[in-house]
Amino acid sequence: MANFDENILLSQRVDLSNEQAIESQVLRIAVYDEFKAYESYSKIIEKFGAIHPFVNIKEAEAVHYSALMPLLQKYNVEVPINDWADKIEVPNTYIECCELGVASEINNIAMYDDLIANTKQPDIKDILFKLQAASYNNHLPAFRKCVLNHYNGVNQATNLNSVEEMMNKASEYQMLLEDIASGNMDQNKISELFNKLNISMISGAGFGAALVAFLNSYTQTNKE
């Protein structure tokens, strides 16, 4: 059985043209995304064992969707079907899992920006702000640290030069950068950014560290 509003749930954005009530969209999108995070990190733990930071963040995701449940009950909103178990593909390596965590938390933060902007209910806004803060202040830094620790000391000069060049030229590619920072993360857009900046596509450690450092820096600037 599929969710009746699957397209909206997967988009992670409120559809103002849809007849579904805004509060229903907001709450169902939030819960569905927290389900996704919980199931993703659970499957990573199943594959690689009780590794950090996934163990702690998995438990935090359970707290997150549990915090939303009273609001669904209050506003008479049906809980979305958690159908993520069959949709999730776990990466092949630990570092790829950490990189997935970085991208997922950036998307989550951007999702909450949209949900907060589209709800007028103070109690819903309050919970959404708290959940977004947890992702921004706790989850994203934990995954970023995981990635940077893995790449520490590898191609540092190249990484720093790449990040500096990207930041210096950021204004030239504002639309593409805003698209990435808004949470529309995919490898094609990231590759396009690097190609536009005329930076050599360094593989493995160099690319990973430069990309994570840049995205974190740009997200920080965008958030402020």
Score class of each variant (00 low, 15 high):
residue 68 L to P: 02
residue 38 Y to C: 07
residue 96 E to A: 09
residue 210 A to Y: 00
residue 153 G to K: 07
residue 178 E to R: 10
residue 194 F to I: 10
residue 67 A to Y: 00
residue 102 V to D: 02
residue 101 G to Q: 10
residue 100 L to D: 11
residue 112 Y to E: 00
residue 184 N to C: 15
residue 166 M to W: 03
residue 162 S to N: 06
residue 218 Y to H: 07
residue 66 S to K: 11
residue 4 F to T: 15
residue 14 V to Y: 03
residue 68 L to T: 01
residue 2 A to Y: 13
residue 214 F to M: 02
residue 48 F to A: 12
residue 23 E to K: 13
residue 20 Q to Y: 11
residue 60 A to C: 01
residue 6 E to C: 00
residue 147 V to S: 05
residue 109 I to Y: 04
residue 175 M to L: 07
residue 81 I to C: 05
residue 119 T to E: 04
residue 62 A to R: 15
residue 10 L to D: 10
residue 199 I to Q: 13
residue 219 T to I: 12
residue 46 E to F: 00
residue 62 A to H: 14
residue 79 V to S: 10
residue 195 N to T: 08
residue 123 D to Y: 01
residue 114 D to H: 04
residue 209 A to T: 09
residue 223 K to D: 04
residue 223 K to W: 04
residue 185 M to H: 09
residue 218 Y to N: 01
residue 141 P to R: 05
residue 143 F to L: 04
residue 134 A to D: 13
residue 105 E to H: 03
residue 34 E to P: 07
residue 202 I to M: 13
residue 24 S to A: 15
residue 12 Q to D: 11
residue 155 N to Y: 14
residue 218 Y to M: 04
residue 100 L to T: 12
residue 23 E to L: 10
residue 214 F to I: 00
residue 160 L to N: 09
residue 96 E to S: 04
residue 98 C to M: 15
residue 55 V to I: 03
residue 174 Q to E: 12
residue 223 K to M: 05
residue 189 K to L: 12
residue 171 S to P: 03
residue 92 N to F: 07
residue 22 I to R: 12
residue 51 I to M: 05
residue 50 A to E: 10
residue 186 D to I: 06
residue 84 W to P: 08
residue 144 R to C: 05
residue 204 G to T: 12
